[in-house]
Amino acid sequence: MTIHHHATDETLMRYAAGQLPAAPARVIDVHLSGCPACRARVEQFEALGGALLEQIEPAAMSPGAFAAVLRAIDATDEKITKTVSSLSSVGCARAPAMLPGGIGLPEALRDCEMGPWRWIGIGVRASVITLPEDSEARLMLLRVGAGRKLPEHGHFGTEFTQVLVGSFADEFGRYMPGDLSEMGHEIEHQPIVDQECECICLAALDGGMRLTGFFGRLIQPFVKL
């Protein structure tokens, strides 16, 4: 799979720094799972984090801090051996949610709950993805019919769209499975789904407070914004 559209450096840096909110971070997770180039960038930014950590002005710790950690070590050393067995029962068995066409949800979303597909406009359906780490995160799957042209729209906040199935094109190029479209709020674009088949995307917004764009209007009825 050759990937033509990547995350921006700014986004990968925020991801590596832990600054990206949960929903966009999941979109990036999915992109990274198929993109060695962006994975390498994230590793570089993590190394940057390590370098910056070493250069940072050290803070003063409270007087008993180290002794407290040693006590905690003594206390947990015994506990660890006792609780190890119970850890294995944590993973819950749930059949992986399926996308149309029998394709499973991306590996990076296996621990998420996938809502039912709902009709939200002519040729457009959406499914809300619930994240275990943040129940309020706004992550969704969009399923847009072949040849559908979406109205031109801008956004408040950055819109992240990862193509899972099918393809679409806009002013910036053609997006195939594995590609990520990252649209800043200053950008207007008009995606058109290619004729051959429907397009399924994973989409999230970062920093959208007042959503009047197309995506925002789409999801408004399903997530309380």
Partner: peptide
């Protein structure tokens, strides 16, 4: 996978 400072940075981040 990473140097020590980078490893500790990722633990702190997580």
């Amino acid at each position: 996978k990473a140097g020590v400072a980078t490893w500790i940075f990722t633990i702190a981040r997580n």
